[in-house]
Design a protein around this nucleic acid. Structure first.
Length: 1084
RNA sequence: GGGCGAUUAGCUCAGUUGGCCAGAGCGUUCGGUUUACACCCGAAAGGUCCUCGGUUCGAGCCCGAGAUCGCCCACCA
């Protein structure tokens, strides 16, 4: 029986359920429910298939996700969905990061804005013994719960196929246990130590920062040239080497040492003035002294070759600015600290932790700063105010020689954005410079990506690893290597509350009463240490207590790390605290727990099946800014604790910039919430577009538009330039006489949304690409469904008769499957997306469907091939566009319930597309003859269409034509003429080698045929113009080929097949040229 | 200061190991409502591949120099 379309739509037919436009909002939530109900993303280590795993780079719970996250997670989801379909045991582990300093800061800021009790109040409570710490942490916990939920919702809206049952948080119980275990092992192994040195101090959040948490920003400052009086001892005054020189015993020489500095206020902590020993005019002053103005400290002039010798003509900016005298402030400058170490200078810290000037944090008491009338007004000032005061003092006393403007880079806290203060303090360090960490990480690099270097001993070949850590694109291996080669020890303690508290106990004050029975206390600790319950360091050294005399020890330098203080070793803690030891108040750097992520999410430190199966993970997908902060540390930790890499591949994707090439940031309001895009374009559209933007470049620009909240129209916002030089959307936008607030307006506080002036969502026309494509896929499927007559096609199964169209489209499909496989294996997401796009839209829709349109409803073969192509295309597209493809899969399953496989193309049935198998196309499908022949048809169709447009033939008119075809191709052209007739809208009259042009016909040359368009030759001038244009092009080509072949070196040196190719081309082009010229001739 | 990247059509970007006339999407122009899709169909116009020099039979691609922009790293005199 033959079913016609007229009898088709059954009342409940799925095709009838598909509206003519794809509306994502109607589909996305339902598909998510379906996947969840099928538990489609859950994986078990014991499942079949080659293991494939990805751990999500855990987003910070500080804020909702932006488009950069959307890109990052889309790519991971493409990989995971593809791996799942390819039959792998694929898992994607989701989670979030507690982001210590960032979250604590943002919560404190929010509390302050709301006028509620904020961090400083809780700190006061804590000091008063009212448990402010726990109360504040509870506030942060609330924030975390809220944002973790929001992030999870965003990821689900994007369609991320995470195994939600395994969701982790860097501070949950399992992850906390991993952190304690890692800390304990590293401490026991002597890789964690306590050190007092200059750290990057954030005076606002009042915590130390790691080197890479400091951002350099250019600021306009000044160079101050300040005169320090050179003094000599009063004749007869007593000089004691033991104590500091008494200023009263010194008198001015009348000479000055002029120091140059950008930070005048730190002069209060100067303990020397340095000159370069090679700086002849000044070096002779070495050994003399200056009296430090304001504080009256007598400090030596020392020689150190760090000092830059002034040179006005130098290329070096410093040499041009230098005075030759360098003030040395060991407590407030890292370089000065080093100089101080070399010369054994005292360290005078003149600041409190909030960076105000203070006499109470390391100012020598014998200088009696509190009795100094010059100093008095400066004490207590902020560093900025102190700078002004010091400068004024020098001016008032005639000691300010000069002030020059100077633009330079200053380190700022990446959180509070204030200048970082080098600050002298006690901190915990991880000795990443140890070969067990840094060396192992470097040696884990894949050999092909290592770069010869003076700094790295790659003499040890990797231990028979087939491949090591591999970066895509490869250039990022260099970043990784260079970072490790210049590594410094990692400051891991933070003076925060939100984080993993350091599991170390010690005595806070030496004066506290000692345990009564020291001997038994020592024995007890020794026993615990032997049992692996504690580890002990004394003055930074790991100690064996057998030979240790606790009685003699300074208990403030005696550190006891407890293995599991929150768990099994709680009793140990009780004993320690009973004996007056207290827990370190600091927490660990956020990245310490992030660094364990590929381990901790898999259940480490236990030996879990997850760890065995999915660690190392398959690939880490991230942005390049995080190579140093995160990638490096995961590599070191996984290798150290587990002896293997955390992942084999690292894929670094682009950063998304706004339309002006600026980094997207919260403060500029140019960051885009993926939910806004899902709102305007749909999730699939966003995902597909992001994937097709992902080439191996560094950055991509994404011009951001806005949705007018009044009308829903997309508007191009007006931009303004901020004082800092950023281009941002004006706070208030006006469109059609109505106003709305931009996200910059909201972020900057310059505009507040109201009912009349609502906040506008962001969008971008970039995503139109994906939106259109989703709609195209939707409609092509609708067309197919209304033409697939499953029952009829099934009956005719034995009588399949594929024609050129079928051979061609299956060949194209097979090539597309290969392209997708290759692209995804190499993380070439744009290639994957483009291959799908071109196959679906250009080949399947524009050519195949258009060609079979008149016949497919009656033609079982065409129906079967169409069903197969559609099936395979939905599979190929699913990783990029999961929602629309899943919805259409359902419809296709209804319309064509059993196998859609055809010879050479295996398409296993599946109820859900998410669990369907990736298509496999056999080589036999690749049909070069069909591709060539179809190519000829395309050429003929193109030429006729072009002529129709040129000759202004209305699109619906059918024209008549004849064609003169060489005998060699006449047969196949004849066989396939129906395709061209359908696509170019003509009816054929006469064909063959001896056809003559009818009177008044226009001529088209294409595909080796001379095509005569009946009755369209009237406008000879238009025809002539077209032919002349073609003639010129051909003549140019001929000349080109002739020139190349006339070049003896080309013929001699170029590969033979290329030369032959050129000869063939020349012959063919000459023939075409002759035809065109003959035609022009005939035209008269 | 060191490193990385970018510069190709009006815009946003592709261009695999050098090899026919450098491509796509958007935008522009022209023509189209044939019941899959106007988020569509057909056609067209549009490019000194940043500049200069070099290697090569042949350069958008390789080498050198320069210009402009961006990012990462770097101890703020």
């Amino acid at each position: 029986m033959t079913t016609t379309r007229a009898t088709k739509p059954k009342p409940d037919a799925p095709a009838g359920a598909l509206p003519p436009q794809y509306n994502p909002a109607d589909v996305e939530a339902e598909m998510n429910r379906r996947w969840q109900a099928a538990n489609a993303y859950a994986a078990q280590p014991s499942d079949d298939g080659e293991p494939f795993s990805i751990v999500i780079p855990p987003p910070n719970v500080t804020a909702a996700l932006h488009l950069g996250h959307a890109l990052n997670n889309t790519l991971q989801d493409v990989l995971v969905r593809h791996a799942r379909m390819a039959g792998k045991n694929a898992v994607w582990l989701p989670g979030t990061d507690h982001a210590g300093i960032a979250t604590q800061t943002v919560v404190d800021k929010r509390l302050q804005q709301e006028g509620k009790k904020s961090l400083k109040d809780y700190k006061r409570d804590e000091a008063d013994g009212k448990n402010g710490r726990d109360a504040f942490i509870a506030k942060v916990q609330d924030w975390k719960d809220e944002y973790e939920q929001r992030i999870t919702d965003q990821l689900k809206a994007m369609g991320c196929s995470c195994d939600w049952g395994r969701q982790a948080f860097t501070m949950d119980d399992a992850r906390s246990r991993a952190v304690r275990e890692a800390f304990f092992q590293l401490f026991k192994d002597g890789l964690i130590y306590r050190g007092k040195r200059l750290v990057n101090w954030d005076p606002v959040t009042q915590t130390a920062l790691a080197d890479d948490e400091v951002e350099m920003e250019e600021i306009d400052g000044n160079f101050y040239y300040m005169k320090y009086p050179i003094v000599r001892p009063k004749p007869g005054a007593e000089r004691s080497e033991a104590s500091a020189p008494n200023p009263d015993d010194w008198i001015d020489t009348g000479e000055f040492a002029t120091v140059a500095t950008t930070r005048p206020e730190t002069m209060l902590g100067d303990t020397a003035v340095a000159v370069n020993p090679d700086d002849a005019p000044r070096a002779k002053l070495i050994g003399q002294f200056v009296k430090l103005p304001i504080v009256n400290r007598i400090v030596p002039i020392i020689g150190d070759d760090y000092v830059v010798i002034p040179d006005e003509d130098s290329d070096d900016g410093k040499a041009r600015m230098a005075s030759g005298f360098l003030k040395v402030t060991p407590a407030h400058d890292p370089n000065d600290y080093d100089i101080g170490q070399r010369h054994d200078l005292p360290i005078v810290n003149v600041m409190a932790p909030d960076a105000s000037i203070s006499k109470d944090h390391g100012w020598p008491a014998d200088e009696q700063p509190e009795n100094n009338p010059d100093l008095q007004p400066i004490l207590g000032l902020s560093r900025e105010a102190a700078r002004k005061a010091v400068v004024q003092w020098f001016k008032d006393h005639g000691l300010m020689q000069e002030i020059k403007p100077y633009r330079h880079a200053v380190g700022h806290s990446y959180r509070s954005h204030v200048p970082v203060e080098p600050y002298y303090s006690d901190q915990w360090y991880l000795k990443v410079t140890d070969d067990r960490l840094k060396g192992t990480a470097l040696r884990a690099m894949d050999e092909s990506q290592r770069e010869a270097s003076d700094n790295t001993a790659f003499d040890t070949k990797p231990e028979s690893q087939q491949t090591g850590l591999t970066f895509t694109p490869p250039r990022y291996a260099k970043t990784f290597q260079a970072w490790h080669e210049n590594l410094r020890d990692w400051c891991i303690s933070r003076q925060l509350w939100w984080g993993h508290r350091i599991p170390v106990w010690r005595r806070d004050h030496a004066a506290k009463q000692l345990p009564e029975d020291l001997a038994s206390f020592t024995a007890q600790i020794m026993a615990w240490q032997q049992a692996g319950r504690v580890a002990v360091q004394y003055r930074g050294e790991f100690v064996s207590l057998e030979s240790f005399e606790l009685q003699d020890a300074d208990l403030t330098a005696f550190f006891v790390a407890v293995h599991d203080p929150e768990g099994e070793d709680a009793d140990v803690v009780d004993v320690l605290e009973f004996h007056g030891l207290e827990r370190d108040p600091d927490v660990l750097d956020t990245w310490f727990s992030s660094a364990l992520w590929p381990l901790s999410t898999m259940g480490w430190p236990d030996d879990t099946p997850e760890l065995d199966t999915w660690n190392p993970t398959s690939v880490l997908c991230t942005a390049r800014e995080i190579i140093t902060l995160w990638v490096s540390r995961m590599v070191m930790f996984n290798l150290y604790f587990k002896g293997r890499l955390p992942f084999k591949d690292v894929f670094i994707h682009a950063m998304i910039q706004d339309g002006h090439g600026q980094k997207m940031s919260k403060s500029l309001g140019n960051g885009v919430d993926p939910v806004d895009i899902i709102h305007s374009h749909g999730s699939d559209a966003m995902r597909f577009t992001l994937a097709s933007m992902t080439t191996h470049t560094q950055d991509v620009r994404l011009p951001v538009d806005m949705v007018d909240p009044h009308t829903g129209e997309t508007i191009h916002p007006d931009f303004i330039t901020t004082k800092a030089g950023h281009k941002v959307a004006a706070p208030i936008q006006e469109h059609n006489g109505k106003k709305c607030v931009s996200s910059y307006g909201l972020a900057s506080g310059e505009a507040t949304p109201t009912d009349d002036m609502p906040l506008a969502r962001n969008t971008s026309e970039k995503f139109d690409l994906g939106q259109r494509f989703a709609n195209k896929v939707w409609n092509a499927t609708r067309f197919a469904l209304s033409n697939l007559d499953h029952a009829g096609a099934h009956e005719a199964e034995d009588a399949l008769s594929p024609q050129l169209t079928e051979r061609w489209i299956l060949s194209r499909l097979a090539r597309t499957v290969r392209q997708c496989d290759k692209a995804l294996a190499g993380y070439a997401f744009a290639e994957y997306a483009t291959a799908c796009y071109d196959f679906f839209w250009r080949d399947l829709c524009d050519w195949y469907i258009e060609a079979v349109k008149p016949t497919v409803a009656e033609n079982p073969t065409q129906q079967r091939v169409l069903a197969a192509c559609l099936d395979a295309a939905l599979r190929l597209l699913h990783p990029a566009m999961p929602f629309v493809t899943e919805r259409l899969w359902e419809a296709l399953n209804d319309a064509w319930p059993d196998t859609r496989s055809v010879d050479g193309l295996m398409l296993q049935p599946s109820e859900l597309l998410v669990l369907a198998h990736w298509p496999e196309a056999a080589n036999v499908l690749i049909d070069e003859d069909a591709e060539a022949e179809f190519g000829r048809t395309q050429e003929i169709v193109g030429a006729i269409r072009e002529a129709r447009t040129r000759l202004k033939v209305p699109p619906r008119d059918t024209i008549e034509l004849s064609s003169e075809e060489p005998a060699a191709i006449a047969k196949s052209v004849a066989e396939n003429r129906w395709i061209a007739e359908t696509l170019a809208g003509f009816r054929g009259r006469e064909f063959g080698p001896s056809v003559r042009p009818p009177e008044g016909a226009a001529v088209v040359l294409a595909g080796g045929c001379k095509i005569f368009l009946h009755g369209l030759g009237g406008d000879t001038s238009a025809q002539r113009a077209a032919l002349e244009k073609k003639r010129d092009e051909l003549a140019k080509s001929v000349a080109n080929f002739e020139k190349r072949l006339g070049n003896k070196s080309y013929v001699d040196k170029a590969p033979a097949h290329l030369v032959q190719e050129t000869r063939d081309q020349l012959a063919a082009t000459r023939q075409q040229l002759a035809d065109v010229e003959a035609q022009l001739e005939a035209l008269g």
